[in-house]
Design a protein around this nucleic acid. Structure first.
Lengths: 240, 240
DNA sequence: CGACAAATTCCATATTACGAAATATTCTTT
DNA sequence: AAAGAATATTTCGTAATATGGAATTTGTCG
């Protein structure tokens, strides 16, 4: 732990809770000695993150701090929220999970518990793409998103409106989970669920397992409910 | 300048510009040696502001960074934007300026160039309150804010609807500036303008001067246009 | 498997952050 | 106006620790 950095952040946190803060107030709240508070604040001011208001009012944060947060996207928040839920699942059941969001023409893997899984059969696939139409992730997303979004995505992918596909999505909605569409030779299989906030799909999660370990039906019966419970819990957390 | 703090912020800034960053990318961008980047990132992760994504993707910021910015209020941004304009004015004309925003039952002084003024007759009044009805600041605010807001404020102050008051506000709107309502004995006088974004008043600024130096009419003729030009420039800047 | 690239650890050293005490400044009281 | 109280700031000898080149590990790819 780098002390001056940790202390500077403690001061920023303290300052973020009030319009402005005096040396003694901040010293009390952070437990730092006043000379240290003065030194660190001067440094923060030099860096442009704080400004001296007056002797009495002390310092306040500047909007440069806002700039630090500008790059944080919603998906990062979703990952932050989902990660502990996913870890808990993997600890309990063993199988690795993948969290994805939809992008241009593919699902992007945003988080994975593969590294935490004893049955980790794939290298970490973070930031990697998954096909929308054939992966469990993509199929879960498409099944549960709005009809409007689904049509737009399918059109963008150049997929013609297919009654068989529509029936497949209807079944996924009925079951609550999707499966990877595999070539006959595939060893690995995925079962996917959607993280939903009302009509909106925020993300999708799939559990990867070895095909020989269980059939699709068994996978659905054993893990479908647990996966959906986790997805719901994540959705609730993400909504604050 | 506290090095580890400055460097940690350089890393945060670099990270805020991308979804995630690798050690080498960040080392290149910040000019820091890789071992230092590793050490500082680990520290940021321990503090909860960054998270390791994977070996390949490196680190990304967490939404804890958002927390730092949540306390920054609009008024702070306004002060950041207005301060240089106000300093320029005071450097050019000499008289000190005060920036205020409306609060519960008073105008709160958010910034002042009194310290920069050669004719500084008052100690810094930051965070101090000014009366809404009799100060130049309050009268400028009330004259230019929406009728709805004006009625609400006046009602809250317990002021009865007064035709004389309405006429005073109309005159302020016509002139573009307000004046302090003084007891005959007051030495100091203020001329106030509003910082407006369409219908909305974001803040108000008053220039303080010694009553014996000029009459209200002279003050308006000499400084009214310059004050309003400054207020407009601030409004434009504040709108980005 | 072997070789390349990137990340990470090590560690001797110089740097510098530290904070108690002294001093300066501002506010309050009489 | 002057003393007293409260708060902010500077000083400075010292202990603590951040530093980064070199060595090592880890992961990737042909």
């Amino acid at each position: 732990m780098i002390e001056p950095v940790a202390r500077s952040f403690a001061l920023l946190e303290a300052l973020s809770r009030r319009p402005s803060g005096t040396i003694s107030t901040l010293a009390d709240e952070t437990g730092l000695p006043p000379p240290t508070v003065v030194r660190l604040l001067k440094n923060l001011a030099e860096l442009g993150y704080a400004t001296r208001v007056s002797r009495d009012a002390g310092y306040r944060l500047t909007d440069k701090v806002l700039g630090l947060a500008q790059g944080i996207r919603f998906v990062d928040r979703l990952v932050d929220v989902a990660a502990p839920h996913m870890s808990r699942f993997t600890r309990k059941y063993g199988w690795p999970l993948y969290l994805g969001t939809i992008g241009d023409r593919a699902i992007t893997i945003r988080h994975s518990t593969a590294a935490e899984s004893p049955m980790s059969f794939e290298r970490a696939a973070l930031q990697k793409k998954s096909p929308i139409l054939s992966s469990a992730l993509g199929r879960a997303w498409l099944a549960f998103c709005s009809g409007e979004e689904r049509r737009a995505v399918l059109k963008h992918l150049g997929a013609k409106s297919d009654p068989a596909l529509a029936a497949a999505f209807a079944k996924i909605r009925r079951d609550g989970y999707s499966f990877t569409v595999l070539p006959r030779t595939g060893r690995l299989q995925g079962i996917g669920v959607a993280i939903r906030d009302g009509e909106r799909v925020m993300g999708c999660i799939s559990m990867r397992f070895i095909r020989s370990a269980m059939s699709e039906t068994e996978a659905g019966a054993r893990y479908g409910a647990a996966l959906n419970a986790m997805a719901d819990a994540i959705a609730v957390d993400a909504a604050r």
